[in-house]
């Protein structure tokens, strides 16, 4: 009791549902080209808990870090910008146990070349939420990505490629690694593919190499810049 008096008691609310409750979202990535104002996309929500679950849907923009992971941009300006371009209906709803509900995302304006936005699905309950992010990668035109190998480094058995997208749309890099042994003989050709790279961004791709590899030649398989 004395300890409690002098001490600092902390209660941490971690999430909104007991472990058995389950909220599902699909699809989680929506990608479309030549998007026009008024166009809509459907997102399916389902809950498998014991009680009705109220959900709140909100917007953020997203970017990409050098490791390729999504970084949510939730500052007021980014949220306002996302809300000005996309709308979700309904933005607040109650889903019954076992029920699946479809929400419609509508494009309000298509006056940007690219839009990278995240729809955040958050249950509303006492206690903080666990959120599910649905990513929208929308292009209004037919801009092409231009993903190439900006740099590469070999460290022991690991080959790290830095892929850069200098194009106007998101895209991925696909290429072949020609693996040569100490005698200069081609021992293996390995096909590799990166994940998506947003325009103007770089991401790393690490490939494990067999121990016998002495030299590596990198050959891109699509339009883009070579090493």
């Amino acid at each position: 009791m004395r300890r409690l008096f002098w001490g600092l008691a902390a209660v941490l609310l971690v999430s909104w549902v007991p472990l058995q409750a389950k909220l599902s979202v699909s699809p989680v990535i929506i990608e479309a080209e030549q998007v026009k104002a008024g166009q809509s996309f459907a997102v399916l929500l389902r809950q498998e808990g014991q009680k009705p679950l109220e959900l709140e849907l909100s917007w953020a923009l997203f970017d990409q870090d050098p490791a390729g992971s999504v970084v949510l941009l939730e500052d007021p300006d980014s949220v306002k910008r996302a809300e000005g371009l996309l709308a979700v209906e309904p933005s607040r709803l109650v889903v019954q146990p076992g029920e699946s509900v479809e929400v419609a995302v509508r494009v309000l304006q298509a006056d940007v070349q690219q839009l990278y936005a995240a729809l955040l699905v958050r249950p509303v309950r006492s206690g903080p939420p666990t959120r599910l992010a649905v990513l929208f990668l929308l292009s209004t035109g037919q801009q092409r990505p231009r993903v190439g190998v900006a740099a590469w480094e070999r460290s022991g058995k690991a080959l790290t490629l830095t892929l850069e997208n200098s194009g106007l749309s998101h895209g991925l890099w696909e290429g072949e690694l020609l693996l040569f042994d100490a005698a200069g003989q081609l021992g293996e050709t390995r096909r590799v593919q990166s994940g998506l790279v947003l325009p103007g961004r770089c991401r790393g791709l690490e490939v494990s190499l067999p121990g016998w590899v002495e030299n590596v030649e990198i050959r891109p398989l699509q339009l883009g810049e070579g090493p």
Partner: peptide
């Protein structure tokens, strides 16, 4: 379609702590 689900526990109560503990 690509999809995911999540569930988590509701509340965690940490023990009382003294400053520095």
């Amino acid at each position: 379609l690509p999809g995911f689900s999540i569930s988590a526990q509701q509340t965690v109560v940490l023990e009382a702590v003294m400053p520095g503990e």
